[in-house]
Structure formats: structure tokens, C-alpha cells
């Protein structure tokens, strides 16, 4: 069982990841921030039940993605307020305005391309971009590594095509 301090450390460590995961589910900046908070809350609550049957990393990703899926299922038929101009995609420590604007645009394009993927492709790709191995992604998704590989390759190809990386 994890104590309060351990839970705090874990949350601080994973908060940036949860924030990025949230943007893959929600285009609206305010709602993405709200979803990120909901994910943090869900992770905090779930850490009390963590028994060490899996790694903390895959456990947190499972809880976060499940929260994201619930968010999509709940909001799918509600009016969309996707206002990407609200999205603050500033890059930390960047001094060159032109580079920042260009990078911002690229990030926006990447996020749009990611959100246009099917749900499983989106989840697999974002976890891969966060650095999870096939094995870990499979654990989170409930898939075998072959399935993860197929989905990931297809998703990467699709996104790179949109971003003209190929």
C-alpha cells in the first residue's frame, strides 16, 4: 500500500503525461485541462488500491485511458466547442518566436491527426510516443504485442502522411 507522500511523488511525476494523454481525447483547451484533472483524481483514488500486480506505470496509463474513454463516451453527442486557438501550445524555454510559432503549428497538426485516428490507434500511438514498450502498451490495452505492432505501424504511417513526414 502506498502512503500519501509516495502517491504525491507519483502524481507529480505522471502529471505531464496525464496532461498530454488528455489532449489526445479532447480538443477544447478548457475541457482538456478539466479531463487532465479528472485523470489525476482517478489516478490518486486508484493508487490506494494498487496491489503491485503490474507496474505503477501501466497501472496509471490504464486508469488515465479509461477515464479518457469515459469522457469520449459521455461527451460524444454533446455540442463540440473545439477552439484550438484557446490551446496554449507554447514551447518552454523557446526564445525564437518564429520557431515557436512553427512548432506550435506542427503540434496542432499532430494533435489533430492523432484525434482523427480510431480510438485504439490513438491510444497505442500516444503511449508509444510517451516511450512505452510494445509489452507495456499491450498490458494497458489488453492486447498482445503483435496486435500492438500492427496498430502502431498503421497509426504512425497515417499520422506521418498527414504531417508530410514521409
Amino acid at each position: 500500500m502506498l502512503d500519501q507522500q509516495q502517491k504525491q511523488q507519483i502524481l507529480q511525476e505522471y502529471a505531464p503525461i496525464l496532461s498530454r494523454v488528455a489532449t489526445s481525447y479532447e480538443a477544447n483547451a478548457a475541457m482538456a485541462q478539466e479531463l487532465s484533472q479528472e485523470m489525476c483524481l482517478a489516478v490518486w483514488q486508484s493508487l490506494s488500491k494498487f496491489k503491485g500486480n503490474s507496474s505503477v506505470k501501466t497501472y496509471i496509463y490504464r486508469v488515465a485511458h479509461n477515464k479518457g474513454v469515459s469522457h469520449v463516451a459521455y461527451h460524444a453527442n454533446r455540442p463540440k466547442h473545439a477552439d484550438m486557438s484557446e490551446h496554449s501550445m507554447d514551447i518552454a524555454c523557446s526564445t525564437n518566436v518564429e520557431t515557436t510559432v512553427s512548432s506550435n503549428q506542427q503540434i496542432q497538426e499532430l494533435l489533430t491527426a492523432v484525434r482523427n485516428l480510431s480510438m485504439s490507434s490513438r491510444q497505442v500511438l500516444t503511449m508509444s510516443m510517451e516511450g512505452l514498450s510494445y509489452q507495456e502498451i499491450g498490458e494497458v490495452m489488453g492486447m498482445n504485442t503483435n496486435q500492438v505492432g500492427v496498430i502502431l505501424n498503421r497509426a504512425k504511417k497515417q499520422v506521418k502522411k498527414v504531417l508530410n513526414y514521409e
Binding site: L11, Q12, A15, R20, S36, L41, A92, M129, G131, L163
Partner: peptide, 30 residues
Amino acid sequence: MNDFTDPLNALWLQQTTDDPNVYHIQQRAK
């Protein structure tokens, strides 16, 4: 580990992220 040589991964990680308000989360959990 993350492959930073992959342009997609590098771009993905450049997003600005929110810092969590741990106290607020604890209160909400309670």
C-alpha cells in the same frame, strides 16, 4: 525508453503540460 530520434515522439513531448494542484486533488478525493 522513448526514441527521441523519431520526429513524432519529439514533437509529441514538446507540448506544454499542466502542473497538478495536489492539494486540490486530495481535497476532491476526500
